[in-house]
Amino acid sequence: METLTDPAVIDQMTPIPFRVRSVREELSHTFTLELEPPDGAFEFLPGQFTMVYAFGIGEVPISISSSASQTGTILQTIRRTGAVTHALGRLKSGDYVGIRGPYGTPWPMDDIEGRDLLIIGGGIGLAPLRPAVYHALENRDDYERVVILYGTRTPDDILFEKEQRSWGDRTDLSTLMTVDAADRGWNGAVGVVTRLIGRVGFDPANTTAMVCGPEIMMTVTAERLIEGHSMAPENIYVTMERNMKCAIGVCGHCQFGSKFICTDGAVFPFPEVAGLFDIKGV
C-alpha cells in the first residue's frame, strides 16, 4: 500500500479536529453537536454542509444548522442511522470530531432580497433551512414576507420545537406546522405539509421557496407551488442528498445525472434536477 503525499491533497482529505462543546438531544434519534473550530472561527454560508468525521469510524455529510453569522461555534444536527452517526451520537463535551468543509452551494439569500421567502421543511429537513431562517431574521428588512411551513410525522418528531414555537410568536414572520398523525391533545394541524401552503399569504410572483426534506416531499411541494400557485420553477430551491465520500467532486458517489450533489449542490434550483426525479435509479 502506498501513502499519498501531495500537501494540497492531504489538506483536502484531512479532517480538522473540532472540539465538542456540547451535545444536545433533539428527538429520540436526533442530536445536535456544538463544535469549536481550532482557530476560533469557521466561515460558511446558509445551506452549506461539512464532512463530519468520527475518529477511525468514518465520515458523513451533515448540513450546518446554526447561524452563519455565529462563527465561533457551529451546530450540526444529526440523525442516528448508521455506524458513523451512532459513533458521533456517543460523543461527549470535550471530545473531538474531524471536520472538512464547508462544502456545497448555499441558499440564494443574497439573490432574493426584496422577495417573499417561503421556507418549507419536512422532518429533519428543517436543519439545513435553519441558517436561512436565521439569516432572514438577522436581515429582516432585506425581505418582504417570511413564511415558515413545517411538516413532520408526529408531534414527537418536531425538530427544534421550542424554537419553532418562538418563531410563531413573532409578528414579522408567519409559521405553520403540521403532522401526519396525532392523538387528542395535539392542538395543531394534521395533514401533509402541502396543505399548509394555501393557508398563508405570499405573492407567488415575488416569492422564492426553499424546500428541504425527503425527495418525495420536495417534489410534491414543488409541484404544488408550480401548479397550484403558479410559481415559476426557477424560484423554487431544493436540496439533494446522496451517498457521499469525498465532498469535492472526485469520488463519483453523489452523481445525480450530470450533477455532483456535493459541488453542484446540495442546494439546486428545482429545474436543474426536476427531470431526474421521475427516473428510478438515476
Binding site: 499519498l4 501531495d6 491533497v9 483536502q12 469535492i248 472526485v250 459541488t263
Partner: peptide, 11 residues
C-alpha cells in the same frame, strides 16, 4: 472540480 486542489496525490 469546484476549483479545489487535486486529491489522492494525483498531481
Amino acid at each position: 472540480s469546484n476549483g479545489l486542489p487535486t486529491v489522492a496525490g494525483y498531481t
